[in-house]
């Protein structure tokens, strides 16, 4: 089980394209990548979850941790997700009120930061 992580820059945002399953095994890899981006000075981050098949509370914990880091620099962290099974996880845990969730990367980069 591998987690694919790609980073690109778009309209002043660091876009992290995540592919695969985010669970207790793979979440630390995502955490490392997000910490690395913030420590390099990327404070407006978009995490694209469109190619994510599975997400649990360990992945949510990593996203919340990253949100706190960017906010400490007055930055933003938004998500891209249209899959019902992933959106459901954010709804159940109340995180739809915490993260801006967009339908596309383009929309996310236009509406944040």
């Amino acid at each position: 089980m591998e987690l694919g992580l790609g980073v690109r820059n778009l309209d002043g945002h660091a876009v992290v394209d995540v592919k695969g399953e985010i669970d207790v095994y793979t979440a630390p890899k995502l955490r490392e990548k997000l910490i690395e981006l913030v420590s390099e000075g990327s404070y407006n981050v978009v995490v694209n979850l469109e190619a994510v098949d599975f997400l649990d509370s360990t992945g949510l914990g990593v996203l919340v941790g990253a949100l706190k880091r960017v906010k400490a620099h007055d930055g933003t962290l938004s998500l891209v997700c249209t899959q019902d099974k992933i959106l459901k996880i954010f709804k159940i845990t109340g995180l739809t009120k915490v993260f801006p969730i967009h339908d596309s990367v383009e929309e996310a980069t236009k509406q944040s930061g």
Binding site: D56, S57, T58, L60, G61, V64, K68, I89, T93, G94
Partner: peptide
């Protein structure tokens, strides 16, 4: 401490 739900609370909700 940041006012966010802890991972365990989110886990329990799920």
């Amino acid at each position: 401490t940041g006012g966010f739900s802890s991972r365990l609370v989110m886990s329990r909700a799920l």
